[in-house]
């Protein structure tokens, strides 16, 4: 057997001790494969793996597994995201087998945004299992070779299991324990919610390191550059579980007209540099929302290029 759990590029990069750098790509709201290829193309060579979102914010898009396959064909490594909102355990397990068969090796397990926010609020949700149980399902399938009903799998799927963590949601004191729970359930790597409140994240990481969580799992810090003051305000007020300090909004405002985006990128780069030095942080997950074309520049200026070949 291989020394790797799944043998994905991301796993190899992390295991070799490199500071990982992952990106994100939302599938199109349609069958526009050219748009998808163009967006993903910007990330090529800049990141170790690309998260492919699964009907994010409960808005219908091209399915994440299908878009992940397109990325694979384009020579990018997908981090296939799956939410529990839209599938029961039958669909979940069959999709896991399907994506593995087609060469997908990373999978991020999420509960999913409630459909109330999305473009089909009338829909019925599933939530047969939750994100914690999804993590454990993938692990059970991989390590025990068994389905959730205990039956043997004929050729188990080998996936590098990802989970999300929001260090800023409440209750704050429990967040690090919930992270520990996800790791216990089977998470190999964790990507955090976008970080803006650095003080709070430092505190969170200190607790995680004190508990030794960084030795059991790779923790990637979430970064989303602010494009405008409006975006910062929206994130602060409208996005549940997001914390944007007033000082950052002030700093962006202070940059002056036409220079806010540049200030946002500067802040993101400062963050990446700090994360590189922060104990327990194994990499950065860059979510440049609808800003994929700026990723090469951010990666270049952050000094994370070229990406390691493992």
């Amino acid at each position: 057997m291989s020394e790797y759990k799944a043998g994905s590029n991301l796993e190899k990069v992390l295991k070799a001790g490199h500071f990982a750098f992952t990106g994100e790509c939302g599938p199109p709201q349609g069958a526009n494969i050219e748009l998808l290829k163009e967006k993903a193309g910007h990330l090529k060579g800049c990141v170790d793996a690309v998260n492919v979102t699964d009907n994010q914010t409960a808005v219908v898009r091209m399915s994440s597994w299908a878009a992940s396959l397109v990325l694979l064909q384009e020579g990018l490594e997908p981090n296939f995201q799956m939410v529990c909102r839209d599938r029961n355990r039958l669909a979940i397990q069959s999709d896991i087998l399907g994506v593995y068969t087609h060469g997908i090796r990373n999978m991020l397990c999420l509960s999913g945004d409630h459909q109330k926010f999305g473009d089909h609020p009338e829909s019925k949700n599933v939530f047969d299992i939750d994100s914690m149980q999804l993590i454990n399902t993938v692990k059970t399938m991989r390590d025990d070779g068994k389905f959730l009903n205990g039956k043997d799998i004929d050729v188990p799927p080998r996936l590098f299991i990802g989970a999300a963590s929001n260090p800023f949601a409440e209750p704050f004191d429990f967040r690090v324990y919930r992270l520990a729970k996800k790791i216990e359930a089977g998470a190999d790597f964790v990507q955090t919610q976008c970080i803006y409140n650095m003080d709070r994240f430092r505190e969170f990481m200190k607790r995680a390191v004190d508990m030794g969580l960084h030795e059991k799992c790779y923790l990637l810090a979430g970064v989303t550059p602010m494009k405008s003051v409006g975006m910062a305000r929206y994130m602060a007020k409208q996005v549940p579980g997001m914390e944007v300090p007033e000082s950052l909004i002030k700093r962006l405002k202070g940059a002056g007209k036409g220079k806010v985006a540049e200030e946002g990128i500067k802040f993101a780069i400062e963050q990446i540099h700090e994360f590189e030095e922060m104990e327990g942080v194994a990499g950065v997950h860059l979510m440049a929302i609808e800003w994929e074309h700026r990723v090469p520049e951010i990666a270049e200026r952050a000094g994370v290029l070229p990406r390691p070949q493992v």
Binding site: H114, D130, S131, A169, E170
Partner: peptide, 29 residues
Amino acid sequence: CSKSLMNGPCGGSSHGKCEISDDVDCIWD
């Protein structure tokens, strides 16, 4: 819980309220 989570709370819990509405308490909180 809006998502019937057995291992909550999710990342949408904010100030003791559920992400779907300020009128809904986050039971996991």
